[in-house]
Nucleic acid binder design. Structure first.
Length: 617
DNA sequence: CTTAGGG
DNA sequence: CCCTAAG
């Protein structure tokens, strides 16, 4: 049984920490002696601080409570009664510290019937919260708490960073940065606030309560509870946002969620309407909150588009995506400014990277850096990782083996050699045709190869003794002399990794035969049998090569099949017979060239093929 | 781990 | 060739 109660918290700790942070920021707070903290009573009797969400919820409950009373008058759509709200909401909430200022409570009770049930909705379950507002400070806080078990001692989880500790057990500090926001928005008249409100939410409010307005605006603008670093004013019917960089602890925690903050110096010179759209995009882009919102839209095209865009299915980010973005962030310095196309509206011109990594704490206590990303329009939290190679080192280990031939390398070599010799047929067949340049890295290793050049010579010498198997033209290419991680300059100036091993004719033939024997798709089988000697050439490689062969063979078909292999332009001349065979096999397998010339081929060249296939069909 | 596809 | 998503 859990109950949400209100507890008065000693103001000392409050002011104490406030001092440690930046006193200049929240003078008002310090002055305020009474602070309320919303907590939940666990079954065992201990007090667990409430989550931010919970706090909001309660606020909204107050709203609702009000509005239910006024329901008939206001006609607002109130979905839940305070009661069920209460029970369902708190049941899901875990222990997250939060604090609610007394004045906020007061404010709440003054609220009119306007309810943004979007917040309420997004609070329905804890997991949902994670999804919707993943990087919001509370999540990390939650971890801390769950680690320390209870929050009665605010110092427990505090060893972390100041920011975390401060916001973790807000006994110390109000991350309800409303304080700031109030200061910033304080100068505004109710009328101005109304203007902003309307621009933000697309509806007018009759609420005269400044506090409430400011709160709503702040939250709407920042899409978080943090307004600490921004000031919003209205000039000539435009929403102008001023901001200043702050390195406050609060910012460190909360900014991540703030899509607008970065736009510090950016001034929207468009009409407030546009500004509104912009903001709505933010809201939309940052999660599902918009879905259930009672916000009144101008239902014009733009809105529809925005909405539908937000409804796009969200895909889990791929590792590559994560890596690439992470990688890019490091370089990203000068931010781009607001671009609607960016959808999520990550408009930041702050010196900080686009996504600020925030520290998260896992239950085991290890910190981990997450960053907020707007993928597919929803705020998704993505681990902040650096681009490092995963999986096995690929060819690199070959190099190692090369240096330690006596142990592992040699034996395997021997085996491999034996294998190759077993099948001299193909090898010799083509081995003579193509320039032989030994030096196949994995083939012959020498003990402690001195220099690449020398190594190459040596291996070449050794190669002479053996055979003639997979030959590489790379003799001319110095960079390929050693291991597989060499790079070659490309035309466009970039460097391409060169563990590219050109497919020898031998290999191609093997592949074709393999396909002939086992059929398309049995790549691993083929590899096992026909490419046992080739340590490289994974089944995937085979598959890819087959794909290429297929393409090549069918591409060449319409022209002429009898033409000799060597086509001038072709970088890797593949004998026509082989191509023909590839074609035949492909047809047998019912394979067609991916896209091109489906018509052509069927047209004339392969009438028999059609018949044959029909037989299969 | 293997296969199928996209990049 | 690289990377992934599905079996």
């Amino acid at each position: 049984m859990e109950t949400v109660v209100e507890v008065e918290v000693n103001a000392e700790s409050e002011s104490e920490v406030s001092k440690t942070n930046s006193a200049e920021k929240s003078p008002k707070l310090i002055a305020d002696p009474v602070v309320y903290q919303l907590v939940r009573v666990e079954g065992d009797g201990r007090l667990v601080p409430a989550t931010d969400e919970e706090v909001y919820e309660v606020e909204d409950l107050l709203d609702v409570g009000k509005s239910t009373r006024n329901l008939a008058d206001t006609g607002k759509d109130v979905e839940c009664t305070p009661n069920n709200k209460c029970s369902s909401g708190t049941a899901h909430l875990k222990g997250i510290c939060s604090k609610l200022q007394s004045e906020n409570l007061e404010t709440c009770s003054n609220k009119s019937g306007e309810v943004l049930d979007l917040e309420i909705h997004s609070m329905k379950s804890n997991t949902q919260i994670q999804e919707v507002v993943p990087s919001l400070a509370p999540s990390s806080i939650e971890s801390i708490l769950s680690e320390s078990g209870e929050c009665s001692n605010p110092r427990v989880g505090v060893t972390r960073s100041e920011s975390l500790s401060s916001s973790a057990c807000n006994i110390s500090k109000p991350d309800f940065s409303m304080v700031k926001g109030e200061i910033c928005l304080n100068n505004l008249s109710v009328r101005e606030l109304h203007e902003i409100f309307r621009a933000l939410f697309g509806r007018v409010t009759t609420n005269k309560d400044k506090q409430w307005l400011k709160r709503r605006i702040s939250m709407g603008l920042t899409n978080s509870c943090d307004v600490s670093s921004t000031t919003f004013v209205i000039e000539n019917n435009k929403v102008v946002k001023k901001g200043k960089e702050e390195n406050s602890n609060i910012d460190d925690v909360n900014n991540t969620k703030d899509p607008i903050k970065g736009a510090s110096d950016k001034i929207w010179k468009r009409s407030s309407y546009v500004a509104k759209k912009e903001v709505e995009s933010h809201l939309n882009g940052s999660g599902k909150r918009m879905r259930n919102a009672n916000v009144v839209y101008d239902h014009d095209k733009e809105d529809v588009l925005t909405e539908s865009r937000a409804d796009k299915r969200v895909r889990k980010p791929t590792k590559r995506y994560i890596e690439e973005v992470s990688e890019g962030e490091t370089r990203e310095t000068s931010g781009k400014v607001t671009s609607k196309v960016k959808g999520s509206g990550h408009c930041q011109s702050s010196p900080r990277p686009i996504v600020n990594p925030i520290e998260n704490i896992r239950s085991d206590g290890k910190p981990y850096v997450m960053r907020q990303d707007s993928l597919g329009g929803s705020g998704i939290q993505i681990p902040y990782v650096s681009r490092v190679r995963r999986g096995r080192p690929r060819e690199n280990y070959m190099t190692l083996m090369k240096l330690q031939p006596s142990e592992l390398g040699m034996p395997s070599r021997a085996v491999k050699k034996a294998f190759e010799i077993c099948d001299p047929r193909l090898d010799s067949e083509e081995g003579n045709k193509i320039t032989k340049a030994g030096s196949s890295p994995e083939r012959f290793q020498q003990p402690l190869a001195s220099k690449p050049e020398k190594a190459e010579e040596n291996s070449e010498r050794i190669t002479a003794d053996f055979v003639k198997d997979d030959l590489q033209l790379q003799h001319t290419d110095p960079s390929s002399s050693d291991d597989g991680i060499a790079t070659v300059p490309t035309a466009n100036g970039g460097m391409r990794r060169k563990h590219h091993r050109i497919w020898t004719l031998n290999e191609v033939v093997k592949l074709v035969e393999g396909v002939a024997r086992y059929g398309v798709g049995r790549w691993s089988e083929i590899k096992r049998v026909f490419f046992a000697s080739h340590s490289h050439r994974t089944s995937v490689d085979l598959k890819d090569k087959w794909r290429n062969l297929l393409r090549a063979s069918f591409a060449q078909m319409p022209l002429d099949k009898g033409v000799d292999s060597s086509r001038k332009n072709a970088s890797i001349p593949i004998p026509a017979p082989i191509l023909a065979r590839v074609r035949a096999l492909a047809e047998m397998e019912g394979q067609f060239p991916p896209n091109l010339s489906g018509v052509k081929i069927v047209g004339h060249s392969s009438r028999d093929v059609l018949e044959r296939r029909s037989g299969y069909l």
